[in-house]
Design a protein around this nucleic acid. Structure first.
Length: 404
DNA sequence: GTCAATTCACATGAAAGAGACCACGGTCTAGTG
DNA sequence: CTAGACCGTGGTCTCTTTCATGTGAATTGACGA
């Protein structure tokens, strides 16, 4: 591409009227000033937590709801308001918010507690200290504050899945060791069946109060979209029926508002890039595809080599053949791939786990079946859209230096 | 034909090892007054 | 005398391997009708 060409491009871009006024408003981390359709939940949360303002420990609270139903937003909003209120009077409340899903923060018991300490302003090395030492520091720090602490654990199900429920047990018992402070735990979970896996003791003490966030329906979604799009887009750049379609899309996917907003934003970006002065319904379709594709490519390119090699083997076998493919066969191909790339092949045991991980990520479908006399294995097929398969393969090949 | 036993090809679990990080305390070294 | 470099120790974390056990239906083969 010549320089003049590029110059033209920039020129064009600069001259083009942008469709967005503020695209951040459609970003998922944006906090709106008012939360729609969640009045009842806000009310309940406030009622449960309000004793904290009078220096009494509120009940532990458990919040359920699918992704994108506004759980995190609502909790954050309510607790911030509370903290503000307490600052004005007796300063009795402090809030710690922790997202357990973020890697490197809450993978292990140690890290979680260390992170909690950091939130309280105590520096803790990322590793090196015995775990109970960190606990001790945590206890002391909290007790020194003499406050009611609202400990919010977002995506708590992820935490338990990774490190087990012992940590929750420790946290629920924390109050017995504290003299000046008290801690109330607020757990947020996407998984409605999550508490079934918990130790009964933990379960009963953790979910003293429960709140369920129902999914938004299409009408509510549309309302939210309308509100946000008013702020995010310029006037009259959205095609008639666009928001309805967008809301319908998301409502179909269990009323995920986050997704609806993302869809709208990406559609807007696509329209803008194309130099349209109207975001059209067809942009939505493209946006949906793009979001999925980006997600997949992002996952793939950040995988470690062994995983990439495994995935590459799966792609190689699956794209060649129509019928179902089984673990053993993948492993054979995988060994070849390793030989080609100079990678040390892992055991089948490990590869089996890796395949299961890819299934979890939704990149492939792997179902355990029994073929009777012919054993038990995973039946593997691709779940990525066929269009993007060549691209995925290419990425894997470059990632593995397999240009042949 | 029926029914229980067998068998396959992995799945799934548990435990333990390897190697990378990291903090901390002790020792050594070189620079400074 | 002191700051900084450089170990060794003891801890965690992640990825793997090793060893053991589990699993579900096609197949087999004995049995009875």
């Amino acid at each position: 591409m010549g320089e003049t060409n590029l110059g033209d491009l920039f020129e064009k871009y600069m001259n083009k009227e942008p469709l967005f006024v503020n695209r951040n408003i459609l970003q998922s981390n944006y906090t709106p000033e008012a939360i729609s359709h969640r009045d009842q939940q806000i009310d309940t949360i406030a009622k449960v937590l309000s004793p904290a303002l009078r220096f009494q420990k509120p009940s532990n609270l458990f919040v359920y709801g699918k992704t994108g139903t506004g759980k995190t937003l609502t909790i954050k909003y309510t607790t911030q308001e509370m903290r503000a209120a307490s600052k004005r009077s007796n300063n009795s409340v402090d809030v710690i918010f922790l997202n357990c899903k973020l890697k490197k923060i809450a993978d292990t018991e140690y890290r979680l507690v260390a992170q909690l300490c950091r939130e309280l302003g105590k520096a803790i090395p990322p590793t090196g200290l015995p775990t109970d030492e960190v606990y001790k520091i945590f206890f002391e720090t909290i007790d020194a504050k003499g406050q009611i602490i609202l400990l919010i654990l977002d995506e708590i199900d992820q935490l338990v899945k990774k490190v087990g429920d012992e940590i929750l047990y420790n946290l629920t018992r924390i109050n017995t060791e504290l003299t000046k402070s008290q801690v109330a735990i607020i757990g947020i979970s996407n998984d409605l069946t999550f508490t079934e896996f918990l130790d009964p003791r933990v379960k009963s003490s953790l979910s003293e109060e429960e709140i369920i966030f129902p999914p938004y329906n299409a009408i509510q979604l549309k309302h939210i979209l309308t509100q946000r799009s008013k702020l995010a887009f310029k006037k009259n750049v959205l095609e008639q029926g666009l928001l309805e379609k967008c809301a319908a899309f998301a409502a179909r996917e269990h009323g995920d508002a986050r997704r609806a907003l993302e869809l709208l934003r990406v559609a807007g970006e696509i329209a803008e890039r194309d130099g349209n002065d109207l975001v059209k319904i067809e942009h939505l379709d493209i946006a949906e595809e793009k979001i999925e594709k980006d997600r997949v490519l992002d996952i793939i390119s950040t995988q470690p080599k062994q995983h990439q090699a495994t995935l590459y083997s799966i792609f190689r076998v699956c794209s060649k053949r129509k019928e179902m493919v089984f673990t053993g066969e993948i492993y054979e191909v995988y060994k070849d791939v390793c030989a080609q790339t100079g990678l040390r092949p892992l055991t089948q045991r490990r590869v089996s786990d890796i395949i299961a991980e890819f299934d979890m990520l939704g990149l492939i479908n792997a179902k355990v079946i029994s073929k009777g006399r012919y054993g038990r294995t995973r039946e593997i097929s691709l779940s990525t859209p066929k269009v993007s398969n060549p691209k995925i393969k290419k990425i894997l090949e470059t990632g593995l230096d397999l240009t042949a």
